[in-house]
Design a protein around this nucleic acid. Structure first.
Lengths: 183, 183
DNA sequence: CGACAGGTAGAGCGATCGCTCTACTTTTCG
DNA sequence: CGAAAAGTAGAGCGATCGCTCTACCTGTCG
């Protein structure tokens, strides 16, 4: 059943997010998902597949998390950063799950591909939003700046604390938009 | 001997940097350092101590790497970002060793402490440089912006490619300085 | 009914893990 | 010289790893 696979993927995502990748083996993952070892392996035939499955699930979760928000103006552009702040406060402040995975398995082609795909679409998110708010203008550089701030904020929140990193990133983003006369 | 410990630490740093933390056990580290298992454990009595040792060594290496450069003007402030670009080109483009370690062992107090200490001093680097170039002005926010760009650049370079991330970060940093009339 | 897909529980495989230990050699130095 | 310190080589410990497999149960459907 697809329900089962979804349910397991949800638990894998939560588990890896909370405990990291190195600190728990397959048996621990099985227990968290509350299924038999056989069922776990039926849907995710290796530990690497479990990681990829968790990342794919997180990808969907996170883009759903970004939905909604202001449909125009600065608020529309900044929305992903605001939602990231919410995520860091309400869900987890443990860095980026994708980059954490990449850190542990830098040689895995499968993991690398999922990470690159996710990040490319995330960067595109800023590009799209800027294109909507400032149509006809070349906002490519600005999109890259906002994406860098997004990545920096995610990491800095871990060791500096959420509030400081979030305020700094939003302040910097607003300044960058203001400097380009986007309002 | 301290020489020996230094030499081992150098190899540990290189090894973890190139292969990641999860993908090699103590035996592989021993082989890279080209010492006996007993000697390795004499200087670093546990795998966690090896990681901490590698991070401490990297801390020293990296701050030495930042030395030199312009002593005033925008160049002085941007120097750490320029040197980071050099590092990503010449040494390794594998993200931040400290954050990679934290990703794998989020529950280790020892590792967490080293990471927080390193990052705090790195953030301070921008604060100091700005204070020198724009004495008497409140450049705290700007320093935080530059630090966020530094962190974002480090991560983005991994999956977007060095050039794109480095150019974007330097461009964004210059723009932020210009907007505050720092030259 | 009977076949089968998909679930549970858990024993157990070989490999590898972090780490300790023995036995011996080399270097340092009072 | 001779003791202590610090090195090498590597066997081997118990624990854990990822993963497979057997044995059994349950619901669906032709």
């Amino acid at each position: 059943m697809t329900d089962m696979k979804q349910r397991i993927a949800t638990e894998l995502e939560r588990s890896f997010s909370e405990q990291g990748f190195a600190e728990q083996g397959v048996e621990a993952l099985r227990a968290e998902a509350d299924v038999s070892l056989r069922t776990l392996y039926r849907h995710f035939p290796s530990r690497e597949a479990m990681i990829v499955g968790a990342l794919e699930h997180r990808d969907a979760t996170y883009f759903a998390w970004l939905e909604g928000g202001p449909e125009e103006g600065v608020g529309h552009v900044l929305h992903p950063l605001v939602r990231l702040r919410d995520w860091l406060c309400e869900v987890a402040n443990t860095g980026c799950l994708f980059l954490n995975a990449l850190a542990e398995y830098p040689d895995s082609a499968a993991i690398g591909a999922v990470v690159r795909d996710h990040k490319a679409r995330l960067a595109e998110e800023f590009t799209r939003r800027l294109a909507r708010v400032a149509p006809g203008r070349d906002t490519g550089d600005l999109a890259e700046t906002l994406f860098l701030l997004h990545e920096g904020m995610t990491q800095a929140a871990r060791f500096q604390g959420r509030e400081k990193a979030c305020e700094a990133a939003l302040r910097a983003a607003r300044a960058a938009l203001a400097a380009e006369d986007i309002r």
